[in-house]
Each structure stands twice: as structure tokens, then as C-alpha cells.
């Protein structure tokens, strides 16, 4: 009889868990629970010159992403485009807008106040590249330089696996890929895709904006 108390003692915590719920500490927090002064905003903007894609997240003072509440009003004003509302999916809000501009205004309204944040993209640019290039010759890409932002170039192709990437700390407005940079074998003709990205990252208090101007050019590589 004395030992019958042991299973009862074990049963008690089990019952307590069942009543209270022993789930892990995964509290879901909503943006409406956080006052405007504590809200942070992380925005990523990417433009190809004709279309901009904007994505944002709201966070509390600990930078942990918040579920975006329906009370949050999030719209974007872009040159040449009507005011567009963000689509919310969980802790992220998305928007795609057709615009050639490089300065946007993000308006955030909520019951306890609102604010407008300016999204500044790096200067627009055009990449010049030969339509066709022999595999025995280097390939040179040219664009209008802007020394304020670093440039990243990524070359991809169905003719080789992986990618060839370069990061230029100083933008000189051109880059030449050497003959040895690409391993193309057994393919008579091949399409090389170069993606040039100029990035401007800014931070203001709890808000951060990362803006990319992305241009893509294609070069036919011939034997």
C-alpha cells in the first residue's frame, strides 16, 4: 500500500500538464500588441527598372518578427503608379508595383499613430554587354558607375553548374570576365545570364531599408 502512492505522485504532474498545457514557450505576438514607439520595420526593395518588389517585416524592441495585425495600414506611393496596399501573409507584407522610379514612400497607419518612410533605391543604370561573344575572348560588361555602392555580379548558365560570382567593392562601371572563368564543354552554343546588383543599405533607429537595383543581361557564348 505504501508504494501505491508512487504512481499517484507521478500522475499528478501528468494531470497538471494536461490541464494547463505543456507546450513549449512559443508565444505568438502581434504587431497590434506593440506601441508605435517600439515598432521596428525591416524593408527590402528590389527594382529591375520597370517593376519594384517590396517586402517588409515589423518587429518589437527585441527585433523578433511580429505577426502583422489587420489594424496595421501599409501602403506604398511610387512614381507613376497608384497607391497600393501591401498583402499580408503572417509576419510578412508584400507588394509589387510597376514603376520606373527610384524613390518610394511607405505609409504606415495604425490606431495610435502613423508614419511615412522614404525608400531610396540606388541610382538606376543600364548594363551594356555584347549580344554574342566567342568563348576564346573575354566578356566585358559596362554600366554607369556610382562609387557609393558596391556591385555584385552573378553569372549563371544552363551550360555549367553553379554560378560565378564577383563582388566589387569599388564600382568602376565595368567588369571583364576572363576566358578561364567559365567551364563550358561540349555545347556549341550557350546562353550566359549576368545579373548585376547595386545595393544601398540604410538604417534609421529600429528601421532598416535594403534597396537593390538589379539588371540582367544575356550573352550568347559561341565556340
Amino acid at each position: 500500500m505504501r508504494f501505491a502512492i508512487v504512481p499517484l505522485l507521478l500522475l499528478c504532474p501528468a494531470l497538471a500538464c494536461a490541464l494547463v498545457g505543456c507546450a513549449s514557450d512559443s508565444e505568438i505576438r502581434e504587431s497590434a500588441d506593440v506601441v508605435a514607439a517600439d515598432l521596428g520595420m525591416a524593408v527590402t526593395v528590389q527594382s529591375n527598372g520597370n517593376t519594384a518588389v517590396v517586402e517588409l517585416q515589423l518587429s518589437a524592441a527585441d527585433y523578433y518578427p511580429l505577426q502583422i495585425s489587420p489594424q496595421e495600414g501599409l501602403v506604398l506611393d511610387a512614381p507613376g503608379a497608384p497607391t497600393t496596399a501591401f498583402a499580408v501573409l503572417g509576419d510578412r507584407a508584400f507588394l509589387t508595383v510597376a514603376t520606373t522610379g527610384s524613390t518610394f514612400f511607405l505609409r504606415h497607419t495604425r490606431p495610435d499613430g502613423g508614419r511615412t518612410r522614404t525608400l531610396e533605391l540606388p541610382p538606376a543604370f543600364v548594363v551594356e554587354a555584347p549580344e554574342k561573344a566567342s568563348r576564346a575572348e573575354p566578356i566585358t560588361l559596362r554600366w554607369t558607375p556610382n562609387e557609393d555602392e558596391p556591385v555584385a555580379i552573378v553569372a549563371t548558365s544552363s551550360c555549367f553548374t553553379g554560378s560565378v560570382g564577383r563582388r566589387l567593392e569599388r564600382d568602376r562601371g565595368e567588369y571583364t570576365f576572363s576566358v578561364g572563368d567559365f567551364r563550358i564543354a561540349g555545347t556549341p552554343e550557350c546562353r550566359l545570364v549576368f545579373r548585376v546588383t547595386r545595393t544601398l543599405a540604410t538604417r534609421d533607429g529600429r528601421d532598416s531599408v535594403t534597396a537593390h537595383q538589379v539588371r540582367t543581361v544575356t550573352v550568347e557564348s559561341t565556340p
Binding site: 573575354p138 555549367f160 560565378v164 564577383r166 566589387l168 567593392e169 569599388r170 568602376r172 565595368e174 567588369y175 571583364t176 576572363s178 576566358v179 578561364g180 572563368d181 567559365f182 567551364r183 563550358i184
Partner: peptide, 20 residues
Amino acid sequence: RPLGLDTGSYTFNAGELEKK
């Protein structure tokens, strides 16, 4: 530079080696 083709030479672009 992992080279796709070993041609016996490679040219780094102007400024590519510069360190900020």
C-alpha cells in the same frame, strides 16, 4: 578563382584587388 578553363593566364580587373 576556380577556373573553368586553364588557359595559363588570368587577369584581375582594375581595382578588383584594391582594399578599402
